Amino acid sequence: MSLPGSLRPALVLLATLAWVTAFGQPRPPEPPPLEAAVVVEVYTDILGRAPHAWEVTYCPAHTRNDLRSLLLQSFEYRALSPEVVIHRAFFEYCGRGPTPEEMRHYRRRMIDERWSVGRIRQDINRQWSNDDEHHGRGPGYDNDGPRGRRDAIDRMIERAYDDLLERRPDREGMEHYRRFLERGGSESSMRARLRESEEYRVKLPDSKTTRAYQNVLRRAPDAGGMEHYRKLLVDRGWSQRDVEADLRRSDEYRNRKR
């Protein structure tokens, strides 16, 4: 039997009231699934790859942030070591592996600043994959005009200081290397000079070692430990986190935890 049209709205209202009485507030409708383009963008940014077709079709997230959170917690993301990500990007975009300072620079970005895989790849592609790099001058050197050339030189100096000394250049250092580069010096020569500085070879690694010892063992480093980790930090490209992880594997740390 068909119901009169005038009764249908009333019956729908009664059914809704009965549901609310029995189960509380009705469940809101599910939001629409993410568009395929958004899924592809987030997968590329977090995992450095495009999603498979089934990952787009059955994507469980309904917002961009939800999908980012899911991928950041995935086994695949946790299995991506910074070293693997950085090596792959340099070989893909530059046809070579990263130098120790480049590895150190991007490891810090991934570990300390939580850069995504996509952001690492984008930055390597933008900064290092052009021919100027192979001449030891770095990208952006040949900008037109004196102002563009000065800006490019300043960026080159700032990048070298950030990579090697992990700080911005002071005014004296900026002026010194600006003159050096304007007179024909190369970026590789400037970096070699910074690597020979006492700050790079002694002060910076010693400060990292001291902080690591204080964080893990709650004491100052002894002379032997200071020398040991200085070599690893300078010659092997270790970070402060690497030193802390190594200290946590020591007998002193295990005995201290008992």
Rank of each mutant, 00 (worst) to 15 (best):
G225R: 02
Y141N: 02
A22H: 08
H134K: 11
H62P: 01
R179N: 11
D144G: 00
L232F: 06
S197K: 04
R230G: 05
P32V: 10
G5N: 11
E30V: 11
F90Y: 15
M226N: 02
R230D: 03
P33L: 09
V12D: 10
L47H: 07
G185Q: 07
G24H: 10
R179E: 14
R248V: 00
L47G: 07
Y177M: 00
F75S: 14
T63N: 09
E133I: 04
R258F: 12
R159A: 01
L11E: 10
G225L: 01
L194E: 04
D235I: 03
G225T: 04
V216F: 06
H105D: 05
H52M: 13
L247S: 00
H105E: 05
R254Y: 07
V42K: 00
Y177V: 02
G5F: 10
S2N: 11
F23I: 07
H52W: 12
K257G: 06
K208A: 11
R27P: 05
R104H: 15
D144L: 09
A36Y: 01
L11T: 06
R179Y: 06
E133W: 09
M1D: 14
R230C: 01
R49I: 13
L17S: 10
T63A: 11
R107N: 07
R254H: 15
H134Y: 13
G173R: 01
V56H: 03
R147V: 14
D251M: 08
M174A: 11
P82M: 06
N125R: 15
Y161S: 03
G97M: 10
Y93L: 08
H134T: 09
G48A: 05
R211T: 09
R96Q: 13
Y161C: 08
M103W: 03
Y177E: 06
K208R: 15
F75G: 07
L14H: 10
G24C: 13
Y253V: 06
D123Y: 07
G145A: 02
P60N: 07
A192K: 12
T57W: 08
W115D: 02
N215C: 07
Q214K: 15
D162N: 11
G225K: 01
P51I: 06
R108Q: 09
D132G: 02
V85H: 04
G95V: 10
V84Y: 10
L165R: 00
V85W: 04
L71N: 03
E35T: 05
P139C: 11
E76R: 02
R64P: 03
A220D: 12
R78N: 14
Y106K: 00
V234W: 00
N65V: 14
T21C: 13
L72M: 14
E30N: 01
F23T: 14
A220H: 09
E227S: 12
D132S: 11
S207C: 04
A160T: 07
L13C: 06
